[in-house]
């Protein structure tokens, strides 16, 4: 597995570059995935390789036989396989995951000393875990129950709490790369059917007041709102790669602007190639696959076409999306 990924530099890797590299790999890898757990596993391996993460934990809600939802360690991967389990999976780790799940912030960074008791800090430092990046992400889709778990196997609204332990002081670009990649991964998983669509209005999961419950320490529980619309919940942005480019005619071409002028020509070869491949149905992710172009090239080409007013972006529901969004990300 590790040979698939380029070795990151010592210290903080070039997060933006690694983000593109990992995104490209993800776009190809997701086509061969059939469960969300495969995706979580893949993400763990990839994050560790590309961003020099020491330990990754993905926590998701799980329905107990008593039909209460508890936070469950879904996927965990340490860089060092010798990292003892008592360090990675314990009461304190659950409490920290619950804290991030409760606060529902996209990402926060803490030094280990701020989160763990001194004894545990020492152990974590031994395995180069000096900082913890944690966050929460939800999406209006359903998460299938983990395989081979006791209790009801019905899917729950998607909510992901993640913990990343790193040896270097994480910069903002790493935080952005992690949240962006996770968001893209969730979008791709939704497209690929690894996450399930929400039931039709009127069914139990979509009723107002339906909640998921993130378990606190044994014997306590905290209630968190479900993914439906409600106070304090923002709509989940569509991942960049799920956006669909559509060709359009420059309104001024041949009316005000001379189509024979140099400025009217799409000079960039990649942009011309992408323009030819755009059919108004394929998303950016699908275009990366169908054209065989790198994601970075597709985005650069799209930027050119958007600037030339030759392409517009719409979300999967067909609603126009501001092109500025593309360049922000």
């Amino acid at each position: 597995m590790s040979s698939q990924y380029p070795q990151g530099r010592a210290g903080s890797p070039d997060a933006r570059r690694q983000q593109f590299v990992m995104m490209n790999l993800l776009l190809r890898a997701v086509a061969a995935m059939y469960t969300i757990d495969e995706l979580f596993q893949w993400l763990c391996y990839a994050f560790i390789e590309h961003f020099q993460i020491e330990l990754i934990e993905f926590w998701t809600p799980l329905l107990t036989p008593a039909r209460t939802s508890v936070l469950h360690l879904r996927t965990m991967l340490p860089r060092d396989p010798n990292l003892p389990e008592q360090i990675t999976y314990n009461e304190q780790m659950l409490l920290i995951a619950q804290r991030f799940a409760f606060e529902q912030r996209p990402v926060q960074t803490f030094s280990i000393e701020m989160l763990f008791p001194p004894q545990q800090v020492g152990l974590l430092h031994q395995y180069a875990c000096h900082y913890c990046l944690g966050g929460f992400m939800s999406s209006p889709v359903l998460l299938p129950a983990p395989p081979a778990t006791p209790g009801p196997q019905e899917p729950l609204p998607f909510a992901l709490t993640y913990l990343f332990f790193v040896g270097y002081q994480p910069q903002t670009d790493l935080q952005q790369a992690i949240t962006m990649l996770l968001r893209q991964a969730i979008g791709l998983a939704t497209q690929r059917g690894l996450l399930l669509p929400l039931p039709a209005p009127g069914s139990p999961l979509s009723r107002p007041g339906s909640t998921t419950v993130a378990a606190g320490p044994p014997g306590t529980s905290t209630r968190t709102p479900g993914p439906g619309p409600g106070p304090g919940r923002q709509s989940q942005p569509v991942p960049l790669t799920a956006l669909i480019p559509r060709r359009k005619e420059d309104a001024e071409l041949l009316t005000s602007e001379n189509p024979f002028a140099r400025s009217a020509a799409i000079a960039d070869k990649r942009a011309r190639r992408l323009h030819g491949a755009i059919d108004g149905e394929q998303s950016i992710a699908e275009l990366v696959q169908s054209t065989g172009m790198e994601l970075a090239d597709v985005l650069a080409a799209l930027q050119i076409l958007v600037k030339m007013r030759r392409v517009e972006l719409v979300d999967p529901d067909g609603h126009p999306v501001s092109a500025e969004r593309l360049f922000e990300s």
Binding site: E249, L253, L254, P259, A264, I266, H275, G276, R310
Partner: peptide, 18 residues
């Protein structure tokens, strides 16, 4: 002919119509 030369670069349906 000018359209035939320009079209592969400009890729405009309106230009092709012209």
């Amino acid at each position: 002919l000018r359209v035939a030369v320009a079209y592969p670069q400009v890729r405009s349906t309106r230009l092709l119509t012209l």
